[in-house]
Write a protein that binds this DNA or RNA. Structure first.
Lengths: 311, 311
DNA sequence: CTTTAGTCTGCAACCGATTGCACGCTGGGC
DNA sequence: GCCCAGCGTGCAATCGGTTGCAGACTAAAG
């Protein structure tokens, strides 16, 4: 059915080896032969079967991307960036969404491992031991998470949290609530740590309001805790959650930002579409995705290189 | 490095064939042998290499999903549904985003063709001839598009548009503007057709306001045409566009829905998060995705079956 | 006790591409 | 005219599974 090297070989009057070389390693074949092979190849519409090549070379030309929830607009942005960079290097991308189930992550890594050259774990929730196990199956790059021996791309959380605190302080706030994301979220913990040191430095009171789903609904649920705590300003784990809070607050008659300041993190496009727009921390989603791919391709090209940590 | 059938075979004291059969076709091997093989296999952490199997059986266990723009929240919803259904049948999903470049679609189909058993084209913009070409490379199922001999999943657009018109008429509107999506969008054309017959049936004037990007920005741009046309109500190609319109209208001081009614299509989650919420047409995104997978798997199981059209 | 049917397993070929090795040919140097 | 270097190409093995075919062995039937 499909056109194979042998079909091309026959049609061009050469051996399969020559076809393979003409396409993959043009330098070693006679220019005249090469040109003929190439012409025949695309006359026949030949496309090499990546899978077969993968068996021999160990390079499938695919990368995997695992993330918690595509319904959170933060992740599609990363996916798009990853894809762009991957396609530019002739890689295809497997995307898998765990639906915020941390236990699903390792299984996905395993089932992807044989089909991809490497995996990007975006905001993984799995415990460190599993992280190590995962990176034993296949080269791994982390996004939004740091773990010693594994390459990663993160944002400068302390600086971001300092900026948030400075902003709220400049508005006159002396107490800040934090609505955390999932317990298993590394970035949520980091944000709390960042807020803690930034608030200590400025003498502001930080109130930990507990963990909530990193979703619109999660934000809505958080509101009663926020109100009960009496804080005048609150930082949410992410924009989606912040937007949920603003929505529920409005229903209670609390005006944002007059009665209560709400700050999100991620700067998803949606945040700018609201009236009034949500105050949020810009996160370079494109860069995260691009850099992750670069780190992964770098690691694939030179497997001996040490882990790198970017951004 | 990785564990292969032969490793398992050696450890279990059988041949590679037996291992393969024990795992893929348990009925034909002796229960005792089978049990031993299975135990050894997962003691060693054996995972068959899908790609190798694919070479022989022509079944890779992967499906491809191509769509115009993950940044439009409509598509992540479909992706999630597709993934769920696919994973349940032990299929992995390749996702590719064309960034609203119709010319990129066929290329993606080609580069995916050898690695997947079938492809779901969600809201494809390519011309019909290319659609036929694509379905020659690999089994294809269409979502949000209809083309005779290719299986597809669509919504009942005429009914949806009738409901929209009825709703606007019941609010007292006698003229409706339509802000179309991309020229190459089949569903945008269908929606126009649907609106046309629904408005003719009710004696309402329909104004075609031209094509715009199916994005927030596209909606903002559309506003000047909307205002210039003087219509009292407007239907946007999709929610994102409608939301952009509402945003730009608000900046001009036009109050929605008092001064102008705006209706979207898709019912993305975001539409319910706004204040006031956007009026929109519910689209069963989950069902679209699920059904598409079902149709594809059905076609794979029985390649002789004719095309089916669902929803 | 032989024949026959049936079950279980292994051998070997195969899928499509890649690659080490060796052979044949050409051309320059002596 | 002969030798050696070097280029270009083909043969055959390989990757990790799968599968047709045939042989070994068991058990039931004659």
């Amino acid at each position: 059915m499909a056109v194979t090297v042998r079909d091309v070989a026959k049609a061009a009057g050469v051996s399969a080896s020559t076809v393979s070389r003409a396409l993959a390693n043009p330098a070693v074949v006679d220019p005249a032969t090469r040109e003929r092979v190439v012409r025949v190849a695309d006359a026949l519409g030949y496309r090499p079967n990546r899978a077969a090549r993968g068996l021999i070379t160990g390079r499938t030309g695919n990368i995997g991307l695992i993330l918690p929830d595509l319904a959170n607009p933060f992740f599609p942005s990363v996916v798009k960036a990853v894809q762009q960079r991957a396609h530019a290097s002739d890689y295809q991308v497997f995307v898998a969404d765990t639906d915020e189930v941390p236990q699903a992550e390792l299984g996905l890594v395993r089932s992807l491992a044989k089909q991809v050259d490497g995996v990007i774990l975006c905001s993984p929730r799995m415990p460190p031991a599993e992280l190590r196990e995962a990176s034993g199956y296949v080269p791994v790059v982390l996004v939004n998470r740091h773990a010693g021996p594994i390459s990663s791309v993160t944002i400068d959380t302390p600086a971001a949290m300092r900026a948030v605190v400075d902003h709220l302080v400049s508005l006159g706030h002396r107490e800040i609530g934090y609505v955390a994301g999932p317990r298993s979220s590394w970035s949520s913990r980091q944000r709390l740590i960042g807020l803690r040191s930034a608030t200590e430095a400025t003498g502001v009171r930080l109130v930990d309001l507990g963990h909530f789903a990193p979703t619109f609904e999660g934000g809505r649920h958080a509101v009663q805790c926020v109100v009960a705590s009496g804080v005048t300003s609150v930082v949410a784990y992410n924009d989606l959650c912040a937007i949920g809070m603003v929505s529920a607050l409005r229903e209670r008659g609390t005006v944002v930002p007059d009665d209560l300041s709400v700050v999100g993190v991620d700067d998803i496009e949606m945040s700018a579409m609201l009236h009034p727009a949500l105050t949020t921390v810009r996160v370079p989603k494109q860069d995260l995705g691009r850099t992750a791919v670069d780190l992964l391709l770098h690691a694939l090209a030179d497997p001996t290189s040490r882990a790198r940590h970017a951004s």
